[in-house]
Simulated scan of single mutants.
Amino acid sequence: MTTNSSNKVKVAIIGSGNIGTDLMIKVLRTSKVLEMGAMVGIDPDSDGLARAKRMKVWTTHEGLDGLVANEALWDQIKIVFDATSAYVHEKHNDICKRGGKIVVDLTPAAIGPYCVPVVNIEKHLAEQNVNMVTCGGQATIPMVAAVTRVSERVPYAEIVASVSSRSAGPGTRANIDEFTQTTARAVEAVGGADKGKAIIILNPAEPPMIMRDTVYTLSQGATEEEISKSVHEMVEAVKSYVPGYRLKQKVQFERFGSNNPLSIPGYGEFEGIKSTIFLEVEGAAHYLPAYAGNLDIMTSAGLGTAERIATMKLGVSA
């Protein structure tokens, strides 16, 4: 159990950009079990570090090395959120692992197992590093899992995540390839589809659009009623930590039989039910405006995961 006098687990956030700053504000305003210990960045003029200073959070612009150099504070940190980029996460994780820190990875690096809280968090509470997939993955994989859990098989699932270009910072833009690859793999590994595909669209529309996601699944062995019920139940589960998560309309269905199989280019022909699920994710506007639901669902999932680890693995009570 942590020795903090506040009985909270002290955390550090690496990355003072959009995601890191939004996460910091969530920890400070909403968490009953986590306490901000440090905000780590590399740009001394970043808005995230400036906000952290105003909110009385210890900061460094010398990267993770700057935090490690503060030995007394580093010893107190139990959980580290990495909100930087995939290509530097391995280095960050190595340092954290040597220091005995648990890492919640908000980059697409995927060194640790994929974690989508409403689907598989209980399986990964003992891990040193857990990966939060991507914003598109956090929004859509619960829907794939909702179809999978009532079906005998889901041969294929495809997700399309559309976000405002204003809510995509340099970290997101630098990781587009990793985004699509990581999300597609997680659609399979966590969502349960035999084959997954992911697409992200950065929409420059003005005024900025709220995050929209479309999920397509081809399933076998479940009725339309069973799929619809499972999807609605999963939406409510996600809403417990992302209140702005909602269906845009009823789930759409199309049946494919032996006389009209669905042809998936490069994959094959299949029979079954094609389900089309339309989602909208409105953010809580803790840092960026409400249209940035892609940030909100990512940071909310990361926060929820760390809080679960804090209570179940580190023994802190809410």
Rank of each mutant, 00 (worst) to 15 (best):
V187A: 05
V154N: 10
N120F: 09
V88K: 09
N131V: 05
S164M: 05
M132W: 00
R153T: 11
A146G: 07
F179H: 13
T172F: 15
V187Q: 03
T107Y: 02
I95S: 01
V68H: 02
V104Q: 03
L106I: 08
T134E: 07
A146D: 03
S162I: 14
M132P: 03
A109I: 03
G171Y: 08
P117R: 00
A69I: 06
L67M: 06
V103L: 10
D94R: 15
T172Y: 15
V130K: 07
V154D: 11
G191W: 05
F179K: 00
Q181S: 13
Y114R: 02
A109W: 06
Q181G: 10
P117M: 01
P117S: 01
V80Y: 00
D177K: 12
G192N: 04
F179W: 11
E152M: 10
A139E: 09
D105S: 13
C135R: 01
N129R: 13
V150M: 04
S151H: 02
T84S: 15
V116S: 03
A146Y: 00
A110D: 11
G99R: 00
E122D: 15
L125A: 08
Q128A: 12
K123Q: 15
Y156K: 08
A174F: 08
G169A: 07
T140Q: 14
D75T: 12
A72Y: 11
E90N: 12
V68S: 08
A186P: 11
T84K: 00
